[in-house]
Design a protein around this nucleic acid. Structure first.
Lengths: 354, 354
DNA sequence: GCGTATGCTTGAACCGATTCAAGCGGTCAT
DNA sequence: ATGACCGCTTGAATCGGTTCAAGCATACGC
């Protein structure tokens, strides 16, 4: 009924103490004589006081004791996407441990996103730069709060960021396949620029907005070059991480030249779609074709066949991000975490029939 | 560097306008003459003003434009548990649509939980009462904000709640099995009270703290009674939703009397654990034994065999919860959503060999 | 030239707490 | 008896905005 009618000053007045004392009763009880303390508590109860309003406290204290995780995807992304989920587990673990709250910030349209970022009651941001990462960084920077970018597209030394060595990871994947004896490859890539899909050449890669895709591509190329494979002969298709997009990508890759015996996928998600589609077409993995993913999401272990992939320490990235925001409060902090190749059953040597 | 040094009043002073006007420049630009507006903006830029601080606005406006989702589980629960994830998808969808923010509130120990609830900057709470639900309700009630309880243990007409008709759902499950011809059952239950596990009888069920478990049990019983099955002959084991617990439950159920031909599980999670354990023991489902779950989480469709289950409109529950908080601001709002039996492959008629 | 409508701008009140220097009564040591 | 000190309480300042009634030009109609 009577919402928020009674405030600390009302309680103080009714109990016959100063507001300062009343405040102490709730925030620093040991400073108040037990007798007075009890009287104030009783008065508060009688009046139906809801306890110190965090809004007032916030203004005074300055800190909201919560961190925000922002992305340009819809909010449900946090609960759906395998990568995001593992990341959030790391983040929430770190928040739990530090007693910090967690606010999810996002929006589809950029106007609302801007507003949400401006008005989020947090002490810092973790930025999930999946798509439209630069916009996100720009908006957050205006807020003048500490933030750390994850998987940022463009490397920008002026902002804190935590990431992985995409280049080295891609090399591991390529090396694994090359050592298995593969010589004909196809690449299922991620977005190089916003809203694009299709076959791409070296030029497009060099001009990529997102360094993640570019670095992975270069890692593949450089490693394969050691085995005498010319990058120009490798079909590469930029997908949009949807089943349909991967289907088109596979079509292209499998028919662009002589059929590859191995596929390098830039994410587990893409690799898993590819697995399904290959099965539909009667191609068996790894007998007919090998495939290696990237990311190391949990689902990759349970698909059929279990996916060989380059695993990122996803949860650890999340933990470090929180730590960075809460502790490294001052300057720029950049960190690159190691990657690891996890060989499962989606890769094998090229068989005679290929 | 210079953090938060410049405030609206500084900008106003520097630009030679009143603070009121400066405020309008940012919040209601159309009220200010373009020329002045531009001058203020320019001054703000020169001074490095970060824009109106949400803390100040919050205090004045009263609304934080965010809802909190609280539970007594650790924060990572939101990203791990299948039920919670689908629920959060519904919640986040509704928040997105209304432009509301989302804050996750939780803590393992109840002291911290209390603090987190008291200090959360939100306009209302959705309470995920999994465990320790009453404590959660009590803490939230003190805050005097609108809230709605989900899956509340004890029915309490004085609080808003959204749930499902557990009783009817359980009936559907039991009826399905009975009509298939089953006459010997075992029940894998959920918690009746905190921190308990083991075989239970009618008395314990009647005295349950959590109505969810009780209602489901009664639904099973009443329906089976129609087929002449005495509830006292049905072994029922209260599990704790872990693999080990389910293993012990299964041990009990399978050996308490003549082996059942069908198992009624009070959650998909429990049913899925049971599926694994039965497979280990060489019992095939549904040939040797049928099993039906409860909840309808997405994973239930992909296990082997796909699980017959009673599906809850989980995401819809989430959506309605948000709607209730944001719109039904005043009184108590109680709602019960319909359940549906989804027959997949974990159930069949009892075979000759059983 | 006068009254009035129009359109910005101002100044002050207010949102709900926390904090801290100063005050005050009483105790203790000398 | 005096001064130092202790423990609790007070009052006022502060946090950073928003809002609204009132004020002040300027332009307009007649």
């Amino acid at each position: 009924m009577a919402r928020d009618l009674v405030r600390l000053s009302d309680v103080a007045k009714a109990a016959g103490v100063s507001q300062g004392t009343a405040s102490n009763v709730f925030s620093r009880p040991d400073l108040v004589r037990p007798e007075v303390r009890e009287r104030v508590h009783q008065t508060a109860r009688d009046l139906g006081y809801a306890g110190p309003d965090p809004r007032g406290r916030l203004l005074r204290a300055g800190k909201s004791n919560a961190i925000g995780v922002a992305t340009a995807e819809p909010l449900s992304y946090f609960f759906e996407d395998p990568f995001a989920r593992v990341l959030m587990q790391g983040i929430s673990e770190a928040c739990d441990a530090r007693g910090a709250g967690l606010a999810l910030v996002s929006a589809r349209n950029s106007e609302r996103l801007a507003w949400n970022i401006q008005s989020a009651l947090v002490d810092g941001f973790v930025l999930l730069c999946i798509e439209n990462g630069e916009k996100l960084v720009e908006l957050t920077r205006e807020r003048q709060l500490p933030f750390v970018a994850l998987a940022l597209g463009k490397p920008d030394d002026t902002i804190s960021a935590i990431g992985v060595d995409d280049y080295a990871g891609a090399q591991m994947a390529a090396r694994h396949l090359a050592q298995l004896g593969h010589r004909r490859f196809g690449i299922l890539g991620l977005e190089l620029d916003d809203a694009h899909e299709g076959p791409v050449g070296s030029a497009a890669i060099a001009a990529a907005t997102y360094s993640t895709s570019r670095d992975r591509a270069y890692g593949y190329f450089e490693e394969l070059a050691l085995y005498g494979i010319d990058r120009e002969t490798i079909p590469i298709y930029e997908t949009r991480s949807t089943a349909e997009s991967v289907r088109r990508g596979l079509d292209y890759i499998l028919t662009a030249g002589e059929r590859p015996t191995a596929i390098l996928a830039m994410s587990d998600r893409v690799a898993m779609f590819a697995l399904e589609i290959l099965a539909e077409r009667g191609l068996s993995v790894p007998e007919d074709i090998s495939i290696v993913g990237f990311d190391g999401v949990p689902e990759a272990a349970t698909v059929n066949p279990p996916l060989t992939t380059v695993v990122q320490p996803i949860a650890e990235i999340g933990r470090r991000a929180v730590k960075t925001i809460l502790e490294h409060d001052g300057g720029v902090h950049r960190e690159s975490l190691p990657l690891e190749l996890l060989v499962r059953n989606s890769t094998a040597g090229p068989s005679a029939r290929s």
